[in-house]
Computed example of a mutant assay.
Amino acid sequence: MSHRKNIVAGNWKMNKDYEEGRTLAREVVAKLQPSDTIVVLGAPFIHLKGVSHIISEVNNLCLAAQNCHQEEDGAYTGEISTTMLRSVGCDYVILGHSERRDYFEESNQLINAKVKKTLAAGMLPIFCCGEQLPVREAGDHEKLVAQQVKEGLFDLSAEDFSKVVIAYEPVWAIGTGVTASPEQAQEMHAFIRSLVAEHYGEDLANATSILYGGSVKPSNAKELFSQKDVDGGLVGGASLNASDFLAIVAAM
């Protein structure tokens, strides 16, 4: 079975106007050192086409959208389909981010539909899961994450599941400056991998990339990435600065 990929993905969220986004992408291209790590830029919709051109010459640099709609096309004003995303060069779609779950009330079932639509369009889902602080404090974090993963992914065929990247993001550590300790991250990543092994078998579990997200910074990336079951990061704030983002990539 293939060894799992190391991936560092930046999630720009709702930041950077058109020119700023192009500048950031160019800086990443100019300073990126050759490596086996897959580097993903998760840009707002207005940037996708432009960033796609800027990164096209770099083999390990990929493009992600931050969301998609679950239908192919139709009267969904303000939404974007997977076909549209594919047509501007997207490789990945970030799905089920805690901000989508919280602010836009996306359910596990809706995220599951988006995962399937993304795979059908030939792109790879970066599937996010994670718990809020009260859930962690009550000791229910594994139960909640298990429910998110099972309802979001476990009706996929093994072949489809093999294309999914999972990102664990403790919601209490996103944008708060608080990071899960490397031990907490490892514990949850190992738990998620054990869920996959139970459902799809050891081989597929060992080939699944599981990323950590939640205040990943140049100062803590190396320690987080050195954990046995942490295969990279989904980086928020630090991805908006090329030097910080590339320092995190280098830590991989």
Rank of each mutant, 00 (worst) to 15 (best):
A146I: 01
I126G: 14
T83D: 14
D91F: 02
M123E: 12
I55Y: 08
N11F: 03
L119P: 06
N112W: 01
V145C: 04
H53I: 10
P134R: 01
D155Q: 14
E198F: 00
K117F: 00
G78H: 10
K150G: 00
Y168S: 10
D160M: 12
G152W: 02
S215F: 02
S239A: 12
G89Q: 11
V165T: 15
F225C: 07
F191E: 03
N108T: 06
S2R: 12
H141E: 15
V216W: 00
V51N: 07
V51S: 04
G236V: 10
R193E: 05
V88M: 12
N241G: 01
N67C: 07
Q70I: 03
L24Y: 02
V115L: 05
V40Q: 06
C62A: 15
F191N: 04
L24T: 10
N67I: 00
G74I: 12
G122H: 09
V115A: 05
A242L: 10
S35T: 13
E151P: 00
S157C: 10
I80P: 01
K13Q: 11
V29R: 07
P218H: 05
T37W: 01
D102E: 14
H97R: 03
V28I: 15
S107P: 04
E137T: 00
Q66Y: 06
G175I: 01
C90E: 13
L153E: 11
I126S: 08
A158D: 12
T208P: 04
F191I: 01
H189Q: 14
I248T: 12
A75R: 12
T82F: 01
D91S: 15
I55S: 13
G177M: 12
I126H: 12
